[in-house]
Structures are given as structure tokens and as C-alpha cells.
């Protein structure tokens, strides 16, 4: 494991911790898209179907458990916890699941390494992760007051993706024959989706003003 990969994973973990901090201590999920959170839960469930029969390392195993547990608990909080649920911007979070899930499933059935259930689900999870942030970005754009934790959450998620790109570049040059087209293209698309957000996030940080995305 190289430093970019580790930094990427830690950034991913921090993004989840920031979100849990907001939900658990402030008891608020204002500005957070439940649709994106449910899509992430689906991403982890479909990607880690092999959690018990493919062992790569303790690190991978524990991280998989953490990602599964945290994503499911975030969904539980937003749906079932009374105070948290009250703060959910339901009317603004209108993105339709089927526009995301169905194309990803079809694409995974057509473009994959092997036409088996686990392999198609794993490929589906990559495509789904690439676009799962869309409901969250739409919600951000509609929210006039983006609070700091929400902004940081999305920023950390984007940073995690950027670090994974660097990890692949590093691996390409250090591991002979390291080529993963499906992972790379899905990852590149995912990172590009954050470009616009990054631009306004850095601008607001530089000018020391509250983050607001143009309509």
C-alpha cells in the first residue's frame, strides 16, 4: 500500500466521521442527502459481498466493516432517529434513484470482467459510487446556507477520490502490468463530478466567506 492510497482511505474515513459527528452530536442532518447516503450503503453492500470469503488483509477487512457499519448507521439515523429525521430536507432531496441505479446496473451487465453475480455486483458498485454523489450535489446547490460540516464532508469525499487517482498513477509506474480500466474510468468520472464543487469551496475558503453554490 502506498501513501496516496492510505491518505485516500483516511480522508474517506474522516469524511464519514465528520458526517457522524454532525448527526450524532448536533443531531442534525440538514443539507445531507439521504438518497446519496442510501446509494453509498448500496455501494458498500454490493462491493463487499466477498468480505467473508476473500481475505486480503486485516486492514482491508476492518475498513470494509467500518464502511458497511457507518453507512448503514447513517441511513438508520436519517430515517429512524426522530430529531435527526426532523432536520432532513426531504422536499429538496428529490433526485430519483432509478436514474442512477438502473443505468449503472445495465452498464455493469454489459461492461464487466466476468459475467457472474459477484463480479457484476462489484462492477455495479464502482459505477454506482461514481455517480452516487449527484443527489448530494443537487441538494447543496439548492441549500442557501451550507454549514461548515456539510461543506467539509463533501470536500473530504472529493479529496479521497483525488488521492485514489494519484494512487493509481503511482501503482501504474511502480507495479508492472497494473492496468484497471473499469476502476480507473469510473474513478475519473467520479472525481470530475467534484470539480465544480471544489472550485467554489476553495474560492469561499480563500475569500473567507460562506460557501454558496450558484444556481
Amino acid at each position: 500500500m502506498n501513501v496516496f492510497r492510505l491518505a485516500g482511505d483516511m480522508t474517506h474515513l474522516s469524511s464519514i466521521l465528520v458526517l457522524l459527528l454532525k448527526i450524532h452530536t448536533i443531531k442534525s442532518c440538514a443539507g445531507i442527502s439521504l438518497k446519496t447516503q442510501e446509494l453509498y450503503a448500496l455501494v458498500f453492500i454490493t462491493r463487499y459481498l466477498d468480505i467473508f470469503d476473500r481475505f486480503t488483509s486485516i486492514y482491508n477487512f476492518l475498513m470494509k466493516l467500518i464502511f458497511l457499519g457507518s453507512s448503514l448507521s447513517i441511513v438508520w439515523y436519517m430515517r429512524r432517529h426522530k430529531a435527526v429525521h426532523r432536520s432532513y430536507d426531504k422536499d429538496q432531496d428529490t433526485f430519483r434513484y432509478q436514474f442512477i441505479v438502473l443505468p449503472c446496473l445495465l452498464l455493469a451487465l454489459v461492461i464487466n470482467h466476468k459475467l457472474t453475480f459477484k463480479e457484476v455486483m462489484w462492477t455495479f458498485s464502482l459505477y454506482l459510487e461514481a455517480v452516487a454523489i449527484l443527489p448530494q450535489l443537487v441538494l447543496l446547490q439548492r441549500t442557501r446556507n451550507i454549514d461548515n460540516l456539510t461543506g467539509q464532508y463533501v470536500f473530504l469525499l472529493g479529496a479521497y477520490r483525488a488521492l485514489y487517482l494519484l494512487n493509481w498513477v503511482y501503482r501504474y509506474f511502480t507495479e508492472p502490468g497494473f492496468v484497471r480500466w473499469i476502476t480507473w474510468i469510473a474513478g475519473l468520472v467520479q472525481t470530475l463530478l467534484y470539480a465544480d464543487f471544489f472550485y467554489y469551496y476553495i474560492l469561499s475558503w480563500k475569500n473567507n466567506v460562506k460557501l454558496e453554490l450558484p444556481a
Partner: peptide, 10 residues
């Protein structure tokens, strides 16, 4: 063999 090799990442 790409499919199995690809899964050492999260």
C-alpha cells in the same frame, strides 16, 4: 485475471 487482482482496494 484482472477481476481478482482489482479487489485489494476499498
Amino acid at each position: 485475471k484482472q477481476d481478482s487482482e482489482a479487489k485489494d482496494e476499498l
